[in-house]
Design a protein around this nucleic acid. Structure first.
Lengths: 200, 200
DNA sequence: TATTTTTGTGAGCAGTCGTTCAACTACTGG
DNA sequence: CCAGTAGTTGAACGACTGCTCACAAAAATA
């Protein structure tokens, strides 16, 4: 009944995601949004109620697609969980984008002060990453790839913080060599290969 | 000759710093700035040329006062550099402020995409922190407080990233217990006390 | 086909943005 | 005490903000 919706919600959310990631919430005007998504204000407000509604939807989509996708591919699925953790880090800055917009989660975590309702979405995403790390670490432990005295939960929190820090540096234009150094450090902090003498 | 300036530049920059730290650059309107600093637009534009000029000045002041001050007190001065590194971390989130506005450097690093001229100031601040870490680590090494196989430059970069990540989590409302866990992890990653068997 | 229902369109609203500037105030040198 | 100079004030500007709504278009129902 009635006219059919002419636009694909997934496409619109993807465009909005990209725009918010580059410009932030406050930096993206409704005219920018209109241009990026192709949606006129009327349709936009019919579907999302407000600019903030669209932002929430875009953040949710980012969590469900990008974050969960990356967690799945790099942390949950790989047979080699240690290599997976490494690629989770490196793929965050080897995007081929210049300037690199960083991560919508990280950017929103910082900006969400101004947009309080986004805080819940940010928390959800951060927890997904952290528990992804925990899963990969648990599997690495089972394979004997972890330092024996390493606490998995604590290490997962550590990796989350380091990952978020990496993304701050990404967004501020830090060269890739330095980001690789950070990745190497992250790997060294969990693996047992930092000592040449076996002590277990 | 002529009328004297009625306001103290240092006070104005401190107020502006606090405002930008809470609201971000885009989130702080000139009316907000007027209220926070007590300066009317005319005086403001006479002194700083533009909103961006004021922001740059505030960021520079933050670097020169807050960042350098913290680096000095926690990383360069303490006789115990390891304890200094720890307190550098914990003092970043034990501010008594609720909600905690985080760090202007971190926040700007993320938002500076929108305000490209701020990028240089951000880099300056991040480098100050990193070299502060390097200094403390070098002194810790001389005192035999470091793992023997630890590369100081790499560890300093690592601590910088972890510190920035911590501040993202601070800004997103992560509870202090978790932030302490991250701090503990940071300390564990540099000290030799993680193994009970001596292996040097 | 006529009617009803849903969606798209975009001009336009009230309000806010960063910024300007003419009038005014306070101080100095002659 | 007057001219010149530097600083302060706040009303006002055009541009832009998020948002609304009367209207047109397209589909479903009768």
């Amino acid at each position: 009944m009635g006219r059919r919706q002419l636009w694909d919600p997934a496409e619109v959310l993807t465009s909005a995601m990209r725009l918010f990631r580059h410009r932030g919430y406050l930096g993206a005007s409704l005219r920018d949004i209109e241009e990026a998504t192709g949606l006129h204000p009327g349709s936009l407000y019919r579907a999302f109620d407000s600019k903030e509604g669209l932002f929430q939807a875009a953040l949710d989509a980012y969590n469900d697609q990008v974050v969960q996708g990356r967690v799945q591919v790099h942390l949950l699925e790989p047979a080699d969980p240690v290599a997976g953790i490494r690629s989770f880090f490196t793929s965050a800055f080897e995007t081929g984008l210049d300037p690199d917009p960083g991560c919508l989660l990280t950017n929103t975590a910082v900006e969400s002060f101004t947009v309080p309702q986004a805080a819940a979405g940010v928390r959800r995403g951060l927890e997904a990453i952290e528990s992804g790390f925990a899963d990969a670490l648990t599997r690495a432990r089972a394979l004997g790839r972890l330092s024996a005295d390493l606490d998995v939960e604590m290490a997962a929190t550590q990796l989350l913080a380091l990952y978020q820090g990496l993304l701050v540096l990404v967004r501020s234009g830090t060269p890739a060599t330095k980001l690789h150094t950070i990745t190497d450090g992250a790997m060294a902090s969990i693996g047992p290969e930092r000592k040449r003498d076996s002590d277990e």
